[in-house]
Nucleic acid binder design. Sequence first.
DNA 1: GATCATGTTCGGGATTGCCGAACATAGCAG
DNA 2: CTGCTATGTTCGGCAATCCCGAACATGATC
Lengths: 119, 119
Amino acid sequence: MASRTATELIHPDPDDLRFTTVLAALSDPVRLAIVARLAGVEPDGELACTTFALPVSKSTQSGHFKVLREAGVIRQRDEGTRRLNRLRRDDLDARFPGLLDLAIPQGRDVLASWGDRSP
Amino acid sequence: MASRTATELIHPDPDDLRFTTVLAALSDPVRLAIVARLAGVEPDGELACTTFALPVSKSTQSGHFKVLREAGVIRQRDEGTRRLNRLRRDDLDARFPGLLDLAIPQGRDVLASWGDRSP
DNA sequence: GATCATGTTCGGGATTGCCGAACATAGCAG
DNA sequence: CTGCTATGTTCGGCAATCCCGAACATGATC
């Protein structure tokens, strides 16, 4: 996993965040749910991909995380065999103030519709 | 035009606006530009599709307006041979406060990048 | 009517998204 | 060190979507 194949993980610089790309990343229920979950863990909390128990296949899940990372919504870091995810709240708030505050409750609604009861 | 083929134009009720659908509608530079332009014409101003001079084909343009309308971002009304577009600012502000305020400047940036100099 | 102006719809070619299956790597057990 | 498990990624395919030009539909105007 976390295939360390020559290239490191791509994370756009804060200044390179594109509005349309971020919106596209957030315009999917699964990804919105991921964001809401990450927002739930206290400041700068990190979660491994597996802890989400998403209703999609592993490969699709992997793709969703990739979209979020390349859009600059989350930051990923490898620790041993796990890939830890953290919300880039500061960067997003600085560039698109209010967007996350709008998206997070919507993501919570998605989680609730799945019967999820985590923070 | 505005083919009056049996069915009327579909406009979701204010309560039926879906966050992911609205974000998807706004996650495209062309559509973002359309929104910014509509926001430019004063309160409840209306613009015909042609006045936008978008850098895409007519059919693609037609599709973009359809996406915006079905997402509930704009309201369309036929007048003679033209289809007039109006931003559903009140409905959007009520349901997703701050989203349009965030999107409109970004749309203006797109317009500027096209060398556009309208309001 | 004939013609023009404004949009929509249709058909196909390219792009993108989702999945299962196979692969890659870290950690642990023996 | 040799498996074995746990965690993710990548690959090949099929299906859905997007963009375009061409054809069509409708209203206004001569």
